[in-house]
Design a protein around this nucleic acid. Structure first.
Ligand SMILES: [Mn+2]
Ligand SMILES: [Mn+2]
Ligand SMILES: [Mn+2]
Ligand SMILES: [Mn+2]
Lengths: 164, 164
DNA sequence: GAAATAATATAGCCAATGCTATTTTTCAAT
DNA sequence: ATTGAAAAATAGCATTGGCTATATTATTTC
């Protein structure tokens, strides 16, 4: 390769197309840059819905990181317009924040349910989904949903049959 | 929450178990720390297998990053014992390196094939698998393999039926 | 209203991953 | 042997995401 390039006739490569591979790696690096934002916003939405408030300490405790780590990330979320902070009353989502949270929640739910539906244990599904969700494209999510729907319907069919 | 903790009687939480959630986030953060190493080692194995050599410039080109970025990561791979570098002759895998590469390759292949098998297009499967692979636990991989085997066999059955 | 406590902010550190620009080294060709 | 080109190394910078230790600032409680 490189300097020692083959001269002329294309060599049987075995490797996948370079441009395609670069695109995959780029997309993956890109997804990585938003993973944390997504997890924070999703978690904040959950905390708000559950207890009406989301404080730094709660977020830190749920994520398993230190409070200053959360404080720093919250600044990023503020600067990106996803949250508002009311001094000593915790974090609140902006409209874009709520929107992102909803997207993430759905996506997370689909991935986790899907894993369970193919026989992964709930504990493992929970863990794996937390990481995989950020790399599941809309197309893959559609496939997951189709599969979920199909197994649901076949279960219904089976049940209907067993009842009759 | 936190300061304003509920006193006594456990409140209906709606949230999942805190310890479980922390475990998920921790595991995910952990996986993130090895993603790059895995992609590098896998890519180096591919390049070596294909052309007999893996140079910094080739790796950089395939990953879509700059050469000094690769140079730095290679130092990490050397320090972690996965590769050896022969001056101007490129990168070579150590035994642990080959072992890791093999694991990653299989895992990657399983994830990508699985996505295709549930109807995701090859291009999207390629992209999503590049990120998801690093978060697929052995248990999830087993579930993927089971599914692949089952669809393969049902295709065989269907084909056998259509032939007879 | 003062003191204690809880929540937040800030300072200062580190490691990882990216970049550009430049230098050094090796290899290949003349 | 010299030279030109390719590969690799190095310097210097930025951003992200972690940490600990230590202030500040609100809120409760007495
Ligand atoms: Mn999530
Ligand atoms: Mn997540
Ligand atoms: Mn891979
Ligand atoms: Mn990958």
């Amino acid at each position: 390769m490189s300097q020692h390039e083959n001269v002329g006739h294309d060599v049987e490569t075995g490797l996948i197309d370079a441009d395609a591979q670069v695109e995959s790696f780029r997309q993956t690096r890109n997804n990585r840059r938003t993973e944390l934002v997504e997890d924070y916003v999703e978690l904040i939405a959950d905390l708000l819905e559950d207890g009406g408030e989301a404080r730094q300490v709660d977020i830190a405790q749920r994520l398993g990181v230190a409070q200053p780590t959360v404080a720093k990330m919250l600044k990023r979320l503020i600067s990106e317009g996803y949250i508002q902070q009311r001094r000593y009353r915790g974090i609140f989502l902006t409209d874009p924040g709520r929107q992102l949270a909803e997207l993430c929640r759905e996506r997370h739910q689909i991935v986790e349910s899907f894993l369970c539906s193919i026989g992964v244990s709930p504990e493992t599904a929970r863990i794996d989904a937390e990481g995989m969700e950020h790399h599941a494209s809309p197309e893959t999510l559609e496939a997951f949903k189709r599969f979920l729907a199909s197994t649901t319907s076949s279960r219904i069919v089976a049940q209907a049959r067993s009842v009759s």
